[in-house]
Write a protein that binds this DNA or RNA. Structure first.
Lengths: 217, 217
DNA sequence: GAAAAAAAATGCGCGCACGCAAATTTGCGT
DNA sequence: ACGCAAATTTGCGTGCGCGCATTTTTTTTC
């Protein structure tokens, strides 16, 4: 029993959460996102409409969650797992780029859907904020117990930079891919992420140096 | 004619916006924020309920706006007005600390009100995001036309750091001032702001150095 | 294994945010 | 001064988010 939280309970919760995700995405793809009520999603998932809002606090969240998945957890895990010898800045940047470039969740079409509808785009952009707390813990772990604010601020800044990258990416692709009917030209996303994260490298390096100086080796 | 936008129109818009702000704050103070409907605010300001939502996109926004005012514009102006010789990091930090420490808008009681109600606290925290775009322009102006992303990312990071400071401040003060009935112990806010902004100084310095190297003197 | 306790699902009700189209107001040219 | 075009206000309808109290389900305790 590795999970302190009781087993069957959490398991079923994850199951319904997943069912809601799947139902939301499927319906949105079938009918178009504007023709999907939360009642429909709830019904398709076999729960009451009220229960839907116990899991997701907006109609869009479930659809977007089907694409973003557990990205924030994976980013934090990637940062934690990286050998302690590696530079903090590199570690963070690579973790983020990796997770955002990944298999894209087998949802090219889902992403295309998200890009088109403004409400969904907003919800998608919002997901970048979810990185903040997991990343705070991961960075704090690497920096040791120095100034407690530092890790928090760095994580928040990184999340903000990622958000800027996503906004930029959505903006430039909305005008090109939508019109030309092409699939998402995600090729430039990694470059965009690296470019927006670059200005924060000095801050990450400085924090790392301070930590090393305080607790050598 | 300094304002390109036609005179009387914009003037009346500002007037109703201000009327809504004032009405929202007054009613919230009189009855307590939970006993104020948007219809009440609209009626008190002499406009239709629908019009309220043309100006503010949530019930809390008007109340909070009565306290936050045009803070973001003043911060951007302060950054722009600072002599070009001064360091970027100092300029930004001082501008922010000044505007957040300021006369507090003659609204101690309003702030106390905001601190207590969770919904209002959230709305108050959200206002930090408003700094981002004005600050982007102000920083971009100082950095010249180098990498267009840099100013954007730095501004977003600064805004994020400010948000962290405000969250911290609200959290610590909510447990002390509310219980003891004291007025807001805002004395520590400037310190908190400096502490959370400190980790970003290396990033600001680095960007400034790059700009100087590209366009000397 | 049954009762007690904890946790989650549900039903209900209320305000609220917002799209849309019609009505009203404002600005500007003549 | 007048009328037209643009911008703003307004009314209406709809779906949504969520607090609250209740019911149902799962877990724990004896």
């Amino acid at each position: 029993m590795t999970t302190r939280r009781t087993g069957l309970r959490e398991q079923k919760k994850q199951a319904t959460r997943e069912a809601l995700r799947a139902a939301a995405l499927r319906l949105a793809l079938e009918r178009g996102p504007d023709n999907v009520r939360v009642d429909d999603i709830a019904e398709a998932a076999g729960v009451s409409p009220r229960t839907y809002n116990n899991y997701f606090s907006s109609r869009e969240q479930a659809i977007v969650a089907a694409v973003t998945g557990e990205r924030e957890a994976r980013i934090a895990a990637a940062v934690s797992d990286r050998p302690a010898g590696a530079g903090l800045a590199d570690t963070v940047i690579e973790a983020i780029v990796d997770q955002y470039t990944a298999p894209d969740e087998s949802g090219r079409d889902a992403l295309l859907l998200i890009i088109t509808r403004p409400a969904l785009r907003d919800a998608f952009v919002e997901t970048t904020t979810a990185i903040e707390h997991p990343l705070t813990d991961a960075i704090a772990e690497r920096l040791g117990d120095g100034d407690p604010h530092t890790a928090r601020v760095l994580a928040a800044s990184v999340a903000a930079a990622v958000r800027v990258a996503i906004e930029q990416w959505l903006q430039t692709t909305a005008s090109s891919s939508t019109i030309s009917g092409l699939v998402v030209p995600s090729g430039s996303l990694p470059d965009l992420l690296r470019a927006t994260l670059a200005p924060l490298i000095p801050a990450l390096d400085a924090a790392e140096q301070r930590a090393l100086r305080r607790r050598p080796q």
